[in-house]
Design a protein around this nucleic acid. Structure first.
Lengths: 347, 347
DNA sequence: GTGAAAGCGCTAACAG
DNA sequence: CTGTTAGCGCTTTCAC
């Protein structure tokens, strides 16, 4: 109750308060080893009434174990990543492990800084978005000698484990679906993606599959910043003005797709009859639009869950054991046709 | 290059590699004290080539300083909080401080656990959402003897500093604006809010202001889970069926408001002539809807920025200095009328 | 079941 | 400018 100001409580304080050795107090507080019920209660009671909070800094240094898992993602405003985090959180919920999030803003050099910062806390594992990293980043990941899971994307060579989808394949798949329904005049809209490798790969897969069918994208536009919904609207209006013959619009994410959809409906355009639309991500947020946008699920939450599970297994493993599984997981997203990609061949 | 596996590098390794004492290596790596350029370069070079990453655990224990700031928020999927985080991140960007986020899912008891966990890392400060906490949580915050900023809400008694808006006032203000425009038959839709105190306070302020004008809410509905947009649609449809005479719908957040708006437009209802709408939050995400929803900005990013700045100032202060400012900041959100709350008195 | 001693990897405080 | 000496608060290991 009468706590000395400024100096946080230590084990010793609790020890003195209840007349039990520091060692035993430590045992009680960690539920380690056998302690008589009597002393146990005494200790617990003292700790609580003092309001003692253990010092993990000291604990981790002594035990050489840290219950932190570094999670490195490009953005928090992207909707996608909070969902991944939710998956991760769920798995770690009932374990001693704790995720610590770092944000890179899609900047490789910031990724480097953030990772360095996090590794300096000696986390038990790293979950990091993407497969494209600077040499320094990759080196740090390797040197850390802890489990590393690269997430979201599987098109490339992981440092260690990987959980994600093939965005190139996703792009191809959507192209195939679109062509199959008879659409031929296709426009593309998306973020400027020098650094969003996943968007880039989807685009590449998409164009590649079209090319195989002898189709080329007839118009394209890229944006950055601003409200995605509004951007989708604007870009769509502009593109259709430029290229009125388009019969399909592929968007690199659902938000701009939704903007496009709202614009087309405003204009009284028949969707998906006259113009079809598709986005990417399967954002639940958008259920409730006048039409359901065709899209592909990016398996966000599942990616989080699986990545966390890999860390969990690996970090429990004895020092020198090698996991028997390769730790490479490629999920297979499916297309949701919704109401903006017709299901029957054009008349 | 030939690094012993499993054992992370220590200062000593660097020290040996470059023939400089550990202490000096430490100085170089922290940019502390004067070191000759020659040794400095030697050290830096050795550290880099080895791929040495300092151990903050040991460093913090020795220096009794931790560059972590605990940030405790109810949710990541609420859109609101990622924006607050963005504000916080921006401020800490160029400082040694680093936010660490914990999520409570609006559960007081989880809040307690999360905070305990974070305090055990002895952070330099705490930023925590809301003013309602369990006694244990409040006690921990007080005992921690570090700067604490409670954010989002100012209706109540903070433990220490506070940055936010008065949600009660926000509710009253919106009620006043609605009444002023002559709307009289008002329905309310929102989340089930036993634990969302801010939504509750807005609702209370809202009904209170209506009551003063002799107006009562004529219908109300609460939801939980699911896509907010879809829920807004459904609830609005149901409510108007039940209470066709309503001329205004107040939503506890913009997403369900947007759902309602889409529904009304679908039905060909004149908005805001026949029915007016308002939400809350000022979600930029929604720019691009057919009509701009009336709303109030919750000052999310600014709250983050200010809270971070308070921590920053306070944590730099000498041990016993008292901040001269009370550290109580109430921001004043303004109403955006948009296109769903008419600006002129009813005919 | 409990305690005493040693040390985790680093930095504060002094010496030189 | 550089090095030495003590810890930081806990846990490990080994006695009892």
């Amino acid at each position: 109750m009468t706590r000395p100001k400024q100096r946080p409580l230590t084990l010793r304080d609790v020890s003195e308060a209840c007349g039990v050795s520091e060692m035993t107090v430590s045992r009680v507080l960690r539920n380690r080893g056998d302690v008589s019920v009597a002393t146990r209660d005494k200790v617990l009671q003292a700790a609580k009434s003092l309001g003692y909070v253990p010092n993990q800094i000291a604990g981790s240094l002594a035990s050489q174990r840290v219950n932190l898992v570094a999670v490195v993602i490009p953005s928090l405003s992207n909707m996608v990543f909070p969902e991944v985090l939710t998956g991760i959180n769920e798995v770690f919920e009932e374990t001693p492990l704790q995720p610590v999030v770092g944000v890179t803003d899609y900047m490789p050099e910031k990724e480097e800084r953030v990772l360095y910062e996090m590794l300096s806390w000696r986390p038990s594992g790293v979950i990091i978005a993407g497969l494209e990293h600077s040499d320094a980043t990759r080196a740090m990941l390797k040197n850390a000698a802890i489990p590393v899971v690269e997430i979201m994307d599987t098109d490339g060579t992981p440092v260690d484990s990987v959980v994600g989808i093939s965005h190139r394949r996703a792009g191809r798949q959507m192209a195939a679906a679109i062509l199959k329904q008879g659409y031929q005049h296709i426009g593309f809209m998306g973020t400027k993606m020098p650094l969003d490798h996943r968007a880039r790969k989807r685009f590449e897969g998409f164009t590649e599959a079209l090319a195989k069918a002898g189709v080329e994208i007839e118009d394209r536009e890229f944006y950055s910043g601003g409200s995605a919904l509004a951007k989708g609207r604007e870009m769509t209006a502009a593109m259709l003005k430029r290229s009125p013959d388009l019969d399909f619009l592929y968007y690199s994410n659902d938000m701009i797709g939704a903007g496009g959809l709202l614009h087309l409906l405003d204009q009284g355009i028949d969707v998906p009859g006259q113009i079809g639309l598709a986005g990417f991500n399967g954002v639940e947020l958008l259920d409730g639009l006048p039409r359901q946008l065709a899209t592909m699920d990016a398996c966000r939450k599942e990616i989080g869950t699986l990545a966390a599970k890999i860390i969990l297994e690996r970090s429990a493993l004895p020092e020198d054991a090698e996991p028997d599984s390769s730790g490479h997981i490629t999920l297979k997203p499916k297309i949701t046709f919704g109401d903006t990609l017709r299901r029957y061949r054009r008349g």
